[in-house]
């Protein structure tokens, strides 16, 4: 049985006054429990898509559905279980962290959240000790954590994070990554994570989509996508020297390098059977052909097309 779709965009598009389509025909499906990585180069349309999902921008075409509710017609029901941080978290700097949490909490719950709820959320991100300090005294990293705390306050089922580690130091980035993994694992939250840091998405995401020039160019599980377009492989074949020599002679194989106990090479997925046949015919014993493609390589291959 397939997992429940909690967030769906249908042919979503945004055309600005300049008549340029910033986002066009984007169809996303995020399942319950996903940590969904949303990747794209700068200016690809990630933020515009997220703003449409969170109703900050009205789509020119298509629609957004959250928990089966149309965002355009059932906004309050659609956003009831959703929280998010769009780009950098901004707050009422002249108010304390606690007051900021009260305001956003009241807007979600329809009543002032309990003090314990607020303190629990602040505790989760390590800010309980600064609850009553004005936010203007917070560092960028603290604001980022406060952003996550306010998003978690009302126990959302989907959390949308736009570049959550932007501007953080390596330690801060690690903490946020761990927090995201924990939210999914322990709190069963669905996380929609937009980032330009491929490494970050590769480490935490279970499914992902890539947007380029406003259009979706890939979507699926991280594993599936990385295997769908193999180019870099590591071959374990004996005898190594003969195998290397054969591979170097093949036109469909490039970048053949003896690498430790194996051979690294660049091969199109469609050429792998031919390589296997050639090596076998030359009485080489093939033990394995393992894809070595990184997300970076995959990302570049689909966004440069």
């Amino acid at each position: 049985m397939s997992a429940e779709v909690v967030l769906r965009t249908i042919a979503l598009g945004k055309q600005y006054k300049s008549k340029r389509w910033a986002v066009q025909d984007v169809n996303l499906e995020i399942h319950r429990g996903d940590i969904f990585g949303f990747l794209g180069p700068n200016g690809a349309g990630k933020s515009t898509t997220i703003r449409m999902i969170l109703s900050l921008i009205a789509p020119t075409a298509g629609s957004v559905e959250l928990f089966g509710h149309q965002l355009s017609t059932e906004r309050e029901a659609a956003l009831a279980k959703v929280a998010g941080i769009v780009e950098k978290p901004d707050f009422y700097l002249y108010l304390s962290a606690f007051r900021n949490m009260q305001i956003t909490g009241a807007m979600t719950l329809g009543k002032t959240p309990l003090r314990t709820m607020i303190m629990d959320s602040l505790q989760l991100v390590g800010l309980a000790g600064r609850a009553f300090d004005r936010v203007k005294t917070f560092s960028h990293g603290m604001k980022q954590r406060l952003g996550i705390a306010q998003a978690l306050l009302c126990k959302p089922e989907v959390i949308v994070l736009d570049e959550p580690t932007s501007g953080l130091d390596p330690q801060g980035m690690k903490e946020v990554r761990e927090l995201i993994a924990r939210l999914s694992r322990e709190h069963k939250m669905t996380v929609f994570l937009s980032s330009h840091l491929l490494n970050e998405v590769e480490q935490v995401a279970t499914r992902m989509a890539i947007i380029s020039k406003g259009k979706l160019v890939a979507q699926g599980s991280v594993e599936e996508l990385l295997r769908s377009k193999i180019s870099s492989v590591k071959i374990l074949s004996e005898p190594v020297k003969r195998s290397t020599a054969i591979l170097k002679k093949m036109k469909s194989v490039s970048n053949v390098v003896l690498n430790g106990d194996g051979i690294s090479a660049t091969i199109e997925k469609s050429d792998i059977p031919k390589v296997v046949k050639t090596l076998t015919a030359a009485e080489c014993k093939i033990y394995s052909i393992v894809p070595q493609q990184s997300l970076e390589e995959y990302f570049l291959s689909v966004t440069e097309e």
């Binding site: 900050l56 659609a78 769009v86 707050f91």
Partner: peptide, 11 residues
């Protein structure tokens, strides 16, 4: 202040 992003994503 950028706080529309904070309040207008609420239900």
């Amino acid at each position: 202040a950028g706080t529309f992003r904070l309040i207008l994503i609420r239900p």
